[in-house]
């Protein structure tokens, strides 16, 4: 379980997150929506400790992410992350991209790591592309590669940071399909997304962020059908 209590984050003088309180239970799929600059992506970076926080607490399965002495590299193995700019490692083949972290972080043997990588690449539909370098893959394939790479660490949570925003429109579907499959398999997911269809159909809850504040959170039916906040209604009216 991920517990966020009174989280404040500043970039210099800019107050990006203004006191967030949020719990995400095991098995839950949470979509985070809101305008650019509302702090949604920053929230993800605070959860896996890629960004330091200035006030509050983030705990993952009881471990305080930002506490001194926390084994952050160990904790991150639980928290898979997929980025907007997929960030495949250009100097490694698809197989090596996925096999590297299990080998050097988890200490698996080369053969074991390759097996894991083959399995995960097959899982996301890249079983034919094992020895291909990322430069020869489409954006959608690179993003699925990034998902396989995160899954190879056998994470308990997956954080998606606008995983489809940088993709050509015709490639968005394949990535959403992969995310949908993960959700159905019971993965706990926090998805920062601009894909309202995905947020409505796949998530258990949807959170709407506005200027660093979590304006509203609830089941998709509430957010999309009966939003309580004026800001939520305005945002949704604009994106539809």
């Amino acid at each position: 379980m991920i517990e966020i209590r009174d989280l404040h984050k500043y970039f210099g003088a800019l107050h990006v997150l203004k006191g967030i309180n949020l719990d995400v239970k095991k098995g839950e799929v949470l979509s985070v929506i809101g305008a650019s600059g509302s702090g949604k992506s920053t929230l993800l970076y605070c959860i896996n400790g890629l960004e330091p926080i200035q006030q509050g607490h983030v705990t993952v399965d009881g471990t305080d992410v930002h506490a001194r002495g926390t084994d952050i590299n160990g904790l991150r193995q639980k928290l898979g992350m997929v980025f907007q700019q997929w960030n495949s490692f250009p100097h490694l083949t698809a197989l090596e991209n996925v096999a590297l972290a299990p080998r050097i972080v988890k200490g698996k043997s080369r053969a074991e790591a390759s097996d894991i990588a083959r399995k995960q690449l097959g899982h996301v539909g890249l079983g034919e592309k094992l020895d291909v370098y990322p430069s020869a893959l489409s954006g959608g394939q690179q993003q699925r590669l990034a998902i396989a790479r995160a899954l190879a660490m056998e994470p308990e949570y997956m954080l998606f940071d606008e995983a489809t925003s940088a993709l050509d429109p015709e490639l968005v579907g394949e990535v959403l399909e992969t995310m949908r499959m993960l959700a159905e398999e019971g993965m706990t997911m926090i998805c920062v997304t601009h894909e309202m269809g995905f947020a409505r159909d796949v998530s258990d809850r949807v959170a709407f962020f506005h200027q660093g504040v979590m304006e509203e959170i609830g089941p998709p039916a509430q957010i999309f059908g009966d939003a309580q906040s004026e800001h939520t209604r305005k945002f949704l009216a604009n994106v539809r």
């Binding site: 890629l50 590299n73 991150r76 193995q77 992350m81 590297l100 660490m153």
Partner: peptide, 18 residues
Amino acid sequence: VPDTQVRAARSLGMTAWQ
């Protein structure tokens, strides 16, 4: 080398050295 490469690696649990 973009910073995002570092972020991606760190998000997998790699140390700064790795």
